[in-house]
Design a protein around this nucleic acid. Structure first.
Lengths: 169, 169
DNA sequence: TTGACATAGTTAGTCAACTAACTATAATGT
DNA sequence: ACATTATAGTTAGTTGACTAACTATGTCAA
């Protein structure tokens, strides 16, 4: 993942703004900083998960399964919820099944379908990963007060709503 | 890129918090929402850039070159500033050189070094991409007031400072 | 009731990132 | 002065995403 180590200074942005008058300097620096902190967070999270033999994709699948009352779902439902292509999910599940964290159960009623079930080992893996993850996440966010968290979510919602500006036309 | 389409509801988080008492629900939902908005932004940005035949990696290299007074840099400096491995930079530069957007110039003084120079075509490419990018970015951020932008940056700084919680020990 | 379409999952091939190892060159310390 | 170490860039091979195409199965309407 690209990591934007060298964000533009205000001077650099001013220089660019001379050539490109559309530039809104505070918008740009806020936007880039948001991208940067988030990718750094994502890399740190992966680093934390990899100590448990997981990465975000595989970890997320386990969590999605645990959310279900039956600890069971299907590859296509999982791929939609995780936001990856169905083919990608096949690969993630191959890995998780190889490690014994999930099992494929073939559906006798609809022979196209496969049930994916969290195994005891999979649940046990979550029971070691999640406390570690939650503890670290609390520490990371400890400096952000409750009102600041609410405000952050509100601002992110506004940005989220404006996002189609990048894809319109 | 994993896209977290299905963020946990408060109910799901409460259920998880019963099993894992370390869970700080507001911290988790704020953190996940931050990750989600940022990855969605990154995907949208790529979509915008790909209309111009670029993706974030290649685009970022062109910008880094334009920042230099000489429109020139070296592969290793670029790889550090872009936060990618040197080997990755070789690939990005191969693509950009193939498209005529940069040229490699071999340094006669230090024969290990190569200068990477933005070509006229590369500058022209930026001159079409950047106005489009800046215009869309302004629109995307238009709903966020100046004080809110400042506050967002401040909150992100706090999160950024707490990030080693994920990697400590 | 069967032909057309839809759905589920996998396979094959591509892409852009990575690490490790390599070549070539330069700098340094004994 | 020359052996060692450091630096610059590339190559080779791996990984985990992607799309497109395929197989198998199910659904539905004429």
């Amino acid at each position: 993942m690209l990591q934007l180590r060298d964000l533009p200074t205000t001077e650099v942005l001013s220089k660019f703004a001379q050539r490109y008058p559309q530039a809104d300097i505070s918008a740009i620096s806020t936007f880039l900083y948001l991208l940067r902190v988030a990718t750094d967070l994502s890399v740190s999270l992966d680093e934390c998960l990899s100590r448990h033999g997981l990465l975000q994709g595989r970890w997320w699948v386990l969590i999605l399964l645990m959310r279900e009352d039956s600890s069971t779902s299907t590859p296509s439902a999982l791929s939609e919820k995780a936001g990856v292509a169905r083919a990608t999910m096949t690969g993630l599940l191959d890995g998780l099944e190889r490690d014994g964290l999930v099992t494929r159960i073939f559906d006798p009623n609809d022979r196209r379908r496969v049930s994916i079930q969290l195994t005891t080992a999979g649940q046990a893996k979550l029971d070691t990963v999640m406390p570690d993850y939650y503890r670290r996440l609390s520490l990371c966010m400890a400096g952000v007060s409750e009102p600041a968290r609410t405000q952050l979510r509100q601002i992110l919602q506004i940005i989220n709503a404006g996002m189609d500006a990048f894809t319109d036309q």
